[in-house]
Amino acid sequence: MVALGGNFNQDFVLTWGGDRAKILNNGQLLTLSLDKISGSGFQSKNEYFFGKIDMQIKLVPANSAGTVTAYYLRSDGLMWDEIDFEFLGNLSGEPYVLHTNVYSQGKGDREQQFYLWFNPTVAFHTYSVLWNSQHIIFSVDGTPLREFKNMELIGVPFPKKHPMRIYSSIWNADDWATRGGLVKTDWSKAPFTASYRNFNANACIWGSGVSSCISKLNNHARLSAIELDLKSKKRLAWVHKNFMIYNYCTDRKRFPQGLPPECTATGSL
């Protein structure tokens, strides 16, 4: 197991965008920027295989229409696994859309979208992924907003075969990001900058084909046993009732041959 306190110099690599990506304050702060020429991104040095990953993010303020800030876990290869947070920009005064997705064996199409119940641009908020062999839980400031359960018994692929790195990037997606592409990026407002701090991973590190938790079975068992308690289930229901704006499990136009099996087995995930 590893518990990291957020030194970006130690834990991450700036991967693209030149000086649009910066590590500041002796590794305590990271910023990604987008201008008309390019966006930028970073990735973790380590691969992880199960655990809880936290990152505090402050999103692009004011008019961020057309921009997307992504924060996600992803494995390598053509049959990759992926767990996504994507923040879709907006016009000033309009709420961000938080877009989530889960890929397994290279297949996604499991989107859920939410409005946030706060302004994510004026302060840092903690975005978390809990990933174990039983389920994936997306949380914001400790409030769960999505649970994706392991339903392999009914033929639903679940990401539990591949280690994943942490990635984040900011880029221009004004062909679809804001109101389906109707609102374009206003480049007079560039650069658009997102900020990151207080990374923490209570997770198993993957290296040389072996998990760091293999020799620590109690830690691995504890990770796999984490479940939502009654209070968290009530918070999850509150988020779904008040802030969910899209759920693939209710989109019969998208799945005319029938909803995915996890939807009909468990209702809205």
Rank of each mutant, 00 (worst) to 15 (best):
M1L: 13
A3F: 12
Q10G: 11
L24R: 11
L30M: 15
L30E: 08
S38M: 04
G39N: 08
G39C: 01
S40G: 06
N46P: 04
Y48V: 03
F49P: 05
F50S: 03
G51R: 04
M55I: 12
Q56G: 01
K58A: 00
L59D: 00
V60I: 14
A62Y: 12
A65S: 13
A70V: 04
Y71C: 05
L73M: 13
L73K: 04
R74E: 14
L78T: 14
E82G: 10
L91S: 14
S92E: 15
H99A: 08
V102T: 12
G108R: 00
E111S: 07
F114G: 00
F118G: 10
P120N: 02
F124P: 02
S128K: 03
S128T: 11
I136M: 06
S139Y: 03
V140W: 00
V140K: 01
D141F: 02
G142D: 09
P144M: 01
F148V: 12
N150Y: 06
M151A: 06
E152F: 02
I154K: 08
I166Q: 05
S169T: 10
I170M: 00
I170R: 06
W171T: 03
A173L: 06
A177H: 03
T178P: 01
R179S: 12
G181K: 00
V183E: 11
D186S: 06
A190C: 02
P191G: 00
P191V: 03
F199Y: 14
A201P: 01
A201G: 11
I214W: 15
N218V: 15
K233L: 13
K234Q: 15
R235H: 07
L236M: 03
H240Y: 13
Y246V: 08
Y248D: 01
T250Y: 04
E262A: 07
T264H: 00
